[in-house]
Nucleic acid binder design. Structure first.
Length: 308
RNA sequence: CGCGGGGUGGAGCAGUCUGGCAGCUCGCAAGGCUCAUAACCUUGAGGUCCCGGGUUCAAAUCCCGGCCCCGCAA
């Protein structure tokens, strides 16, 4: 079966690599265009592109989905199935209808929960006890198509978006292979999603990381994990950006107004929140390295009573 | 050439602008105090001030070049 793969980040590259170990030929790969990124604005190809090129597979990087040259090339590849994993763009109907078997999507949540761009991060932020992977048929409405297979995995108590992503990537790749096999065998039963149960996980914005100290410490701590490693939870300290990479909840009364430092000694940095106290365990001041709180406190002169 | 901060005993930092004894908070070692302690007191060891060149009586500090780390942005 001729397959075209569409995807962009590392998690998609894992699925592509797994797909390439299978027997179905991947006749082409579509990924986001190389963009100047990072310090110095160097141009870095997407992880999916790197895997594709390593295997000598043709790669297309259209700026626009409706670009005639792209559509023509895609059509020429004559895919019987298009596999989409975190491609980062809505596919128009003419692409959805192109392959005989349609477009198969791997989504990193238990659909219909967490439709959208950042299901992994929001599952952690919201303190879900489980997440998972769902394979589904792509339709025009985002992540709303009928589902094929689903696999659950539990979240650890110290789960971060990064660690969860790392767990889900191979699960998704395996589920993708299983779905393709059953699709070929005709033993797959699409199931319509329950629209009443649908929730959304919008793309993360930088501002999602700004900590509101009036929230309970437990909620802030989850946000720290959910936005790790990107974009990171952060607050302001003397007008400077202070990222919080790791934190823990200290139960008890905050004993001060939210955002106030209630302890700053050579062992710990504690901040009052709307409910209980948050211990900042690993932080990073702008322009500085990330540091354990104890190391950070040695150089920064932070006193009890200071405000974040 | 996208914008910007930084590299100083083992850790985190000050000192650099305005050149003049290598400093602070810790850690480590030894001793003391204490029923005891992550507490307190005394003493001590530990330095290529990122690298190379230049200016100077004198460079962590000023000038030129290089390497490395980081924040923003994307």
């Amino acid at each position: 079966m001729r397959i075209v793969f569409m995807g962009t980040p590392e998690v998609a590259a894992v699925s592509l690599a797994r797909l390439l170990e299978g027997s179905d030929p991947v006749v082409g790969v579509v990924t986001q265009p190389d963009r100047a990124a990072g310090r110095g604005q160097t141009v870095i190809p997407s992880p999916v592109r790197q895997v594709a090129e390593r295997h000598g597979i043709a790669v297309l990087t259209p700026e626009k989905m409706r670009d005639p040259a792209f559509l023509s090339a895609l059509n020429h590849w004559a895919p019987q199935l298009i596999v989409v994993v975190a491609y980062g763009r809505i596919l128009p109907r003419q692409i959805l209808d192109l392959p005989a078997l349609g477009c198969l999507n791997v989504h990193y949540s238990l659909l219909p929960k967490y439709r959208g761009a950042a299901p992994v991060a929001w599952a952690v932020v919201n303190g879900e006890e489980k997440s998972g992977v769902t394979t589904m048929q792509l339709v025009e409405k985002m992540d709303a198509g009928p589902t094929f297979l689903q696999r659950e995995i539990p979240l650890a108590s110290d789960e971060t978006a990064g660690s969860l992503q790392a767990k889900l990537a191979p699960v998704g790749a395996a589920l993708l292979m299983e779905t393709i096999a059953k699709l070929k065998a005709g033993s797959l039963t699409p199931r319509a999603q329950d629209e009443q149960e649908a929730t959304y996980a919008p793309m993360l914005k930088k501002e999602d990381g700004l900590i509101d100290w009036r929230l309970p410490a437990a909620a802030i701590e989850r946000r720290v994990r959910g936005l790790s490693p990107w974009p990171s939870a952060y607050t302001q300290l003397d007008g400077k950006l202070l990222k919080i990479h790791r934190a823990s909840v200290i139960t008890g009364q905050p004993g001060a107004t939210p955002g106030e430092v209630v302890r700053a000694d050579k062992f710990a940095l504690w901040i009052a929140t709307g409910a209980a106290v948050l211990s900042l365990d690993e932080v990073q001041l702008e322009n500085k390295k990330r540091l354990p709180a104890a190391d950070f406190l040695r150089g920064a002169k932070i006193e009890k009573g200071a405000r974040l």
